[in-house]
Every structure is written in C-alpha cells, then in structure tokens.
Write a protein that binds this DNA or RNA. Sequence first.
DNA 1: TTCACCCTCCCCAGAAATAGTGAGGTCATG
DNA 2: CATGACCTCACTATTTCTGGGGAGGGTGAA
Lengths: 237, 237
Amino acid sequence: MKSQIESFLESVQQVETLEEFQSATEDLCDILNLEHVVYHWVNSVGERFGAGTYSSEWVDRYLEKDYLRMDPVIFGCFQRFTPVNWKQLDWSSKAAKAFFLEAIEYGVGNQGYTIPIRGPKGQFALFTVNNTSSDADWDQFVDTFGRDLIIVAHEFNKKALEFEASDKVASTPALSPREAMAISYLAKGLSRAQAAQEMGISEHTLRVYIEAARHKLGALNTTHAVARALSTGVIIV
Amino acid sequence: MKSQIESFLESVQQVETLEEFQSATEDLCDILNLEHVVYHWVNSVGERFGAGTYSSEWVDRYLEKDYLRMDPVIFGCFQRFTPVNWKQLDWSSKAAKAFFLEAIEYGVGNQGYTIPIRGPKGQFALFTVNNTSSDADWDQFVDTFGRDLIIVAHEFNKKALEFEASDKVASTPALSPREAMAISYLAKGLSRAQAAQEMGISEHTLRVYIEAARHKLGALNTTHAVARALSTGVIIV
DNA sequence: TTCACCCTCCCCAGAAATAGTGAGGTCATG
DNA sequence: CATGACCTCACTATTTCTGGGGAGGGTGAA
C-alpha cells in the first residue's frame, strides 16, 4: 500500500484542473479504503474551494447552517499545528454533540483525522480523512499512515495554491529597501518621528518613503499600506 | 538510511530540552552526512529561538547585520508554501551576492534546501539543510530526502511549539466580533469615519472598538494593532 | 551618456487620530 | 441575580498624519 501512496503522490503532482483535484480525493479514498477524503480551504470571507467525497447534501447543509463557526474540528485545528484525531477534540457542548450526530446522519464516518495546513498570507486549509471504524482500528490506521497523510496534505495544498496563483495575476509591487524598512517600522508601532530617528533620517524623508510605498501598494492610507505589505509578504515584521 | 531517519524521528519525539533539540540537529547532520542542519523560528519582536549547526560567529554576524531583512532565503520562503532549493532563489542583487559569499566564508555550504513552516497565530519558522556539493548531487539529495525532510521539519516545529506553549500560557488576544470587524475595515484602508458608517455605528463607538483592540493586542497605535492582528491571524482581510 | 529610480532634505495648512473619562443597555455564565 | 464582557453613544484638547509643492546628489542599466 505504501507504494500505491507513492504513485498516488506522483499523480497528484500531475493534477491541473479542479476535476482532477476532485478525482484525486476519490482515488485516495479507494487506495486507503476510506469513506471520505476532503481537502478544504477555509476562508472567513468566502470559501475559495474545497474538494472531497462528502455528499453535496452535507456540504450544503454545512454551509447553510454556517457550521464553520462552531465545528470543533475547525476550532481545534486553527489553534494547533499537529494533526488531530477527532476523538481527541472537545465535543462536550450540546451544539457540538448535535453537530456530530447530524454529520453521521449525512454519511460522515465516526472517525476522523484532520491535518491543519497553513500557507503564505494567512492561508488556512484542512485535509481530512474519515471512516467508520472502532477506536482501535482507527488509531492503528493513523499510526500507520499519519506521516504519509502529512505529505499528501502538502501536495494537495501545493496544488490549491497553484490554482490560486494562476487566478490573480496581481504583480507584487516591490518596495525599495528604505521603503520596506520604513513600512516595517510603522508596522512595529513606531510613529513617523520614531521611525525616522531609528533610520537616522529626517521625518520629512521618511514621509517620502511612506508616500512612495503607499502609491506602489495602491493603498489609501498608511494603515492600509502596512496591511497590504504584510499580507503580500513584501515585508516581514 | 531511511530506517535511520525513522529512528531519528522517534528520538526527536522524546526531546524535552533545548539542549536535546540542539543535539537533534547535530544528529541529523551525521545521519544525512550534511554540513549544517538548522531550525529557525523567525519572529517579529525578538527571535524566539533557533537551533542548529551554523557557527556562532555566523549567527552573531547575521543578527548584528540584521540580515533577516534581506536574506533571499527568508524572503523566498515567506512567500511560498513549498520547500525551496537555494539555487532557485533570486540572488541577482549585489547585496544578495555579497551576503551569499560572506555566508560561505563563515562556513555555510553553497547548497541549501529550506522548508518554510507556518503554525498557529502567524508563527513562521524555517528548517534548513545545507551542504557543499555540486548542483547535480544536491538535486539528487533533495529528490531522495525531500519528503522525509518535510516530516522532520514538522516534528521539529511541533517541539518548538511545545516549548513555546509551556512558556506563555496566556496571551491569546482574541478580539470580540465587532472589534475584529473594526480592525478589518481599517486594514482595508477605510478611515474611522468610513468604517463606522460601514458598520452602521457612530465614529465614537468605533473608536472604542479600536482602542479596546489596541489594548488587547498590546499595540502602540492603530497601525500597529492592524499589523499584529494580521500577522497573528486574528483577522483575515 | 542619459534616463530612471533611489535617497535625502525642506515648507505649510487642513484633516485625522489619540488619550482620558464617563455612562447606559444587553446577554450569557456562574 | 450578579458579575463581567460586549455594544452603543458623548466631549475636548493635543498630537500626528496627509497631500500638495520643490530640490539636489547618487547609482545602475540601456
């Protein structure tokens, strides 16, 4: 089965369309003999995309009820780095219990293993494998394939980011070194006067940098410029 | 050698002190026959920590000269998700070339492979393996061990986060919904008046949110608050 | 060499943000 | 049913930012 995973990883690297992406989740299901495999790019505003084998009814239901906001899996994964076995999560609240039962009604297995993935610019995604089985069997499965699943999750996310990158041609407006430095200081909370002193230049000069950076970044004000610089990764605070 | 990596991963999971963490990097050097292995948590304020086999002279030099701000490895990794072979980076600027040559003088190998790692709350770390070799040999090495290195990077970061978690139990700035919304609008470039109008509240009220968020985030001013909110991921623009 | 971009400095007036304090309502948790 | 956390509104004076303008010297690429 390990060699099957190897060749599966090869095939994922060939993926070029969303349909193939979707097929890949189904293929992995077959290979590992699972009920569900889901890749899910979580975004507060609007979903970028997700692919997987959950029934469309469940996905619709999930979105409709805005379960994103109370799903213990999302919550747990957002705060940790390591993959999480669903059984370890906190399902104590009434809402969580109801949610879990409803998920099962919609064909979701009782056991799950979800890997949180974080990419550049605050990207957050989840890769989940799911099945109906006993705790012991599931632990065994996780123990055997846990590391392979991390690699698979990486490959999936890599593809997702490629799709995303091809979408927006948005060129990254490179800042000059001094501009980047000026913006960095502001992002650290220094006032213009302080930043200027830190850089050993007059406040007037510093202001010119900020203005230049503002225009390059297409920002409406200093705060916006800092926000853009941070979220496009042109500066590191 | 694969089985050596397996047992190495086992040993990393037993790590409990910084000294053991450091030893682990050295062990991996021996196993893979590399010159350097470095784990490096990059953080805005002050370095949390790093461990690795670079000479302390080079580390001091690096920090003293604030190379963090121009190191192409840092920049490249910050903007991508996939591991990066140093050779693929943009070393065209004069500063970058000088930096590279200086690194080699300080005993850094000419070939490197760095894996970016992102954790909760905007954590960003790098895991680097480094050696002196030909391009072909290095490509061969990366091809052989690339995936294992991702797993190793994960294990290292997991440990790093454990150390960190034991340090600061508190400091989860969690903003209230309205506060987060207010900060989001400012991050989008709206003025306070515009944001207030967008939220359908008076500017005075909005200001209270901004102030509250500022204090919760420990920020010095609005721009700082937005920067922190973005880089810790409490808001998504 | 020329051109474009970067770095540095300067002025001013109007717009916006900041600091501090106060007060009343809702809503969930204990 | 009380405590705390959240949401809403208000005032004033001081500090900081913003948006225009202009000017000179350096450096790298075409």
